[in-house]
Nucleic acid binder design. Sequence first.
DNA 1: GTCTATAAGGGGATAGAC
DNA 2: GTCTATCCCCTTATAGAC
Lengths: 226, 226
Amino acid sequence: MSQKTPEDKPITKTRRPSRIREAHEVKIIEAAEHIFAQRGFNGATLESIAEQASMSKQNMLYYFSSKELLYQTVLKNILNLWLEKLNLINQPGSDPATMLSNYIRDKLEISKSHPNGSKVFANEIINGAPHISQYLEENLKPALEADVKLVKGWIAEGLIDDIDPQHLFFVIWASTQTYADFSTQIQIALGKPELDDGDFKNAGDFLTHTLLKGIGLTFRLEQLNS
Amino acid sequence: MSQKTPEDKPITKTRRPSRIREAHEVKIIEAAEHIFAQRGFNGATLESIAEQASMSKQNMLYYFSSKELLYQTVLKNILNLWLEKLNLINQPGSDPATMLSNYIRDKLEISKSHPNGSKVFANEIINGAPHISQYLEENLKPALEADVKLVKGWIAEGLIDDIDPQHLFFVIWASTQTYADFSTQIQIALGKPELDDGDFKNAGDFLTHTLLKGIGLTFRLEQLNS
DNA sequence: GTCTATAAGGGGATAGAC
DNA sequence: GTCTATCCCCTTATAGAC
């Protein structure tokens, strides 16, 4: 699996990252996600990120030479996670109801497991995507177009209502990511200090019921759970 | 209507704002919305807001004595606009389909007319609502609870499916505000430089069709448009 | 009400010893 | 790889003249 150097002995001078570097990089990225989510790009200080990662600011700069680089890394991590799930065609089951309900559940799952990455991304988009618009153009746009084509096929076959496929995806994105991005507001509305598994289950049930039924799929929840 | 001073002649020393003050305050708030939306609270500088408002930073500080005060003003403006529309019971028509479709159209209209206010608010919530959580607790929460009660009544009467009312509102909020907050991403996905009236019409049609049908309302678009 | 000047502090990034 | 020290710019807010 892993690439081997021609020599017998491993040569540490090559680009292979050392064990300590790898561990520190993970720690720093997690800290950066946390702080960028909480304070935005400009509000986050390298000092506070380093503190969250339990190291000195100067040492952190040894691993990520600039705030910008750190930020880009966090942004691309979450976007790549989403893009993986957006590849609907690669799903095992092939009927529209299963594909869409799986996609909704997957997106919600990421909101639950990576709320900070989602928040950093949301912040970036709200501010006009100054650091990532090109990456969206090159990666998100074509991925969405493939799915739109798929959904148009469903409409042509009469499997679902004649709705606008692009807006279907915009609404799925918004309504799944809101449970990460707007969790503070939802917590206040629900009167609880944190969203728990039950809340995400309720969200998933509501969304699959409403969106699938709403576009004309005679989908029943019991089918999926069985 | 307007409060009168006991004296005959207007006393300029009282709290009544002068004409020039009022005009400048409006200009400053609009500029602040724009810059805060684009750069976040920390990224926005008083210098850039003042420039957008065509005045000196020092003069702007004469009207709004701190960045914090300016920010709070922008936040409460947009939230109050939303709270007005959230008061569903005050609508003329009283059937669920009309109430909800009107609410969705109203929310979308605000996304179109006040995208910057929406973005500033979104940023604030994402960052954990450090400046406005108490205001949400005192104003948003009770307003939502009234609507939840209303929707529960509809369910009890069998007018709509047995869905979770709170999540219905979370999804309406997310999916209408995304056309303001995430407009940059949507523009990239649609391949156009700006969202136009047609895009908002498509969004509104998709949302009313899908959400109303999705919760079991046998609503037809033609009824509303006639 | 508007201007010039400046106080006061914060924060990104680099240099160089160990 | 990690540390101490420091450069230098940016930004909020105030003081005081006009």
